[in-house]
Design a protein around this nucleic acid. Structure first.
Length: 269
DNA sequence: AAGCTGTTCAACCGCATTCAT
DNA sequence: GATGAATGCGGTTGAACAGCT
């Protein structure tokens, strides 16, 4: 017997995070890295449970996050991935650098769902709503590859491949709790569907996109404006906190996928 | 200006999976 | 192999905000 539970409910604070708490958490992680979330609140001097700290960091404080609404291209990619993966938000988020599963899930529920419904498309099945009714009445199976959305050509090419793989066990229409947890898909290498998606990265991502947060040569390009565009909020927030206290110079490609010192955060003093 | 209603999104909860003992 | 903690994930909630009457 052994370990203590993740968070003993007593003395654990809940609700919105204060700037002071954010500061403590960011400061701690920047100095010590991400490890052992259970120990983080104690070591960082926070009255939160480790789970709450992890969520706050991954969904809001992580410096490689993109801010703002999803772009049209990102939205289209989410729709396309959802058609094949269902509600596997973390998998979908993995294909959108700088976006979190929570963010995508929220955007799906508040924007995309309505948009698709308005267009007469079932957001769950991605089939036309009237066609669905027909199917329900007749019992016919919907034809594959008839996604009514105007997918980019590259995505449609991949659709054909995905259809083949997912046809045996289509992820759409399944509740995430059952399907996503019963399949051994945590490792993309073990999941044929995920493997294909990873392999088709170049097809999925519109080449016109630019994600400096991905960390690919963000130092090499030296594109200051792009980085500032993506991290401007962070710079602003950290200035509020007092930039020196964070020792942002410790950001590096290994931990965060980019180097914030590129645009001078670490050189504030 | 005040009240009501709808929308958004950060955060929580509970369950599943992974990992350590 | 069994047990229990740690972590990850998706669904849901509720406070804050915006828009309308």
């Amino acid at each position: 017997m052994g370990r203590q539970p993740c968070c003993d409910k007593l003395g654990v604070k809940k609700g919105p995070w204060t700037a002071e708490e954010d500061k403590k958490l960011v400061n701690f992680i920047l100095n010590n890295g991400q490890c052992c979330w259970r120990a983080v609140p104690k070591l960082a001097g926070l009255l939160r449970c480790g789970k709450s700290c992890r969520l706050r960091w991954t969904n809001y404080l992580r410096p490689d996050l993109k801010r703002g609404l999803l772009t049209e291209a990102e939205e289209q990619l989410v729709i396309d991935l959802h058609a094949h993966l269902g509600n596997r938000w973390s998998k979908i988020a993995a294909r959108l650098p700088g976006r979190t599963d929570n963010e995508i899930k929220n955007h799906w529920n508040t924007h995309i769902k309505k948009k698709l419904t308005k267009m007469g498309i079932d957001p769950v099945t991605h089939e036309p709503l009237n066609k669905q009714q027909e199917v329900t009445l007749t019992g016919d199976q919907p034809e594959s590859g008839e996604n009514p959305l105007q997918l980019p050509e590259t995505n449609r090419v991949m659709d054909a491949s995905l259809e083949e793989i997912s046809s045996s066990s289509p992820p759409e229409n399944c509740t995430s709790s059952d399907e996503s947890r019963s399949t051994p898909d945590n490792n993309p290498d073990d999941d044929p569907l995920m493997s294909l998606i990873w392999d088709n990265e170049t097809l999925l991502v519109d080449p016109s996109w630019d994600f400096p947060a991905v960390g690919k040569n963000s130092n090499d390009t030296g594109d200051q404006s792009l980085l500032e565009e993506n991290y401007g909020w962070l710079l602003f927030d950290y200035q509020d906190f007092g930039v020196e206290e964070f020792g942002l110079g410790c950001f590096n490609d290994k931990d965060l996928g980019t180097d914030l010192t590129t645009f001078g955060i670490g050189d504030e003093r």
